[in-house]
């Protein structure tokens, strides 16, 4: 009897717990779902729909259906589009090559706890915490044609921001200045997390520093590498702030994100056209996201 009462009691507790659990789970799944649908999917679907229209952003009644006209215009008679695609790709490759490798090297060096490494760590990370307006201003002081530091020191007359053959690279250097510190910090965190017994084992086996890094440390940091990969792709696709500060993404600094903004923010109100550009950007990002997810899932299955 006693046991059956106890069992019944525990069952009712279970039931009570069950309803509460169910409520908690529903809330935990439901609220994020609503937020994601509301803040991510609705705007995304909205952009896709708007990209087939022409709208000045005021009354909804003013929305006109124009079919694929925006896309055709973008590909055929909108001169900044193809340069923007090219610049985004250059941006991606550049971020992979220079700041990522540099950030990794800095992290490895600073991880050795040499004298003053805290100071260097802060110095390299500082650009990341500066506001972009400030970063733009700092580099303007370097790059200004008539009054800039670089031209003063080298007695050159290079139009760093204005010459469309040069300005993309000038901006990329400024971006790298910021991005390197970011990557460095991520790798530094990763290196700190590596079990020191791995290094000791490698040392006992007589592996050189370089060999230890490439054959032991680097493979162990795979999750960090994955994160860095994703960050670089995301950063290069949403690259925007610096070029916007410099010249609103014109004259050699066209980027898709800047073109979207030019068309919908402020003075111009081509919401349909801007949405079409945003959709193109979304499609490109989805390609990378799909590749990334496939790799991650394949790994999980293993």
């Amino acid at each position: 009897m006693a046991t059956s009462t106890a069992r019944r009691q525990s069952r009712s507790i279970e039931r009570r717990r069950g309803t509460r659990d169910r409520l908690v789970v529903t809330a935990m799944v439901g609220i994020p779902t609503i937020l994601v649908v509301w803040l991510v999917w609705l705007p995304a679907v909205g952009s896709v729909l708007l990209s087939f229209t022409r709208w000045n952003g005021f009354q909804f009644s003013a929305i006109q259906w124009v079919g694929t006209k925006n896309y055709v215009d973008i590909a055929t008679i909108y001169p900044p589009f193809w340069p923007a695609i090219r610049h985004n790709l250059i941006w991606l490759v550049f971020l992979f090559v220079l700041p990522t490798i540099l950030g990794m090297v800095l992290a490895v060096v600073l991880d050795r706890e040499m004298w003053g490494s805290r100071f260097y760590q802060t110095a390299f990370y500082l650009p990341v915490v500066l506001s972009l307006a400030l970063v733009g201003f700092i580099w303007q002081l370097f790059y200004s044609t008539d009054q800039g530091l670089i031209n003063e020191v080298f007695h050159s007359k290079v139009d760093w921001y204005g010459n469309p053959d040069v300005n993309l690279w000038a901006v990329l250097v400024a971006t790298a200045w910021r991005h390197t510190g970011y990557i460095m910090l991520i790798y530094l965190a990763g290196l700190k997390g590596i079990d020191s017994s791995l290094r000791e084992a490698a040392a006992v086996d007589g592996a050189s520093e370089v060999k230890t890094f490439f054959h032991v440390i680097f493979p162990v940091m795979r999750p960090i590498n994955m994160i860095v990969l994703v960050i670089v792709v995301i950063e290069s696709l949403r690259a925007f702030d610096l070029v916007w500060i410099i010249n609103k993404g014109r004259n050699g600094l066209e980027l898709i994100s800047a073109l979207v903004s030019q068309n919908v923010i402020g003075e111009a109100t081509r919401y349909g056209f801007g949405s079409a550009l945003a959709v193109i950007m979304m499609v490109i990002s989805s390609v990378f996201i799909t590749i990334y997810l496939r790799i991650v899932f394949r790994e999980d299955r293993r």
Binding site: R250, N251, Q262, N263, A268
Partner: peptide, 23 residues
């Protein structure tokens, strides 16, 4: 020009085109 003209045309087309001409 950018106060007399359609804002979309002035800000997304003419701006870039004048810079292109200067180049």
């Amino acid at each position: 020009l950018d106060r007399d003209t359609n804002a979309d045309l002035a800000n997304t087309v003419i701006t870039a085109s004048l810079q292109d001409f200067i180049k």
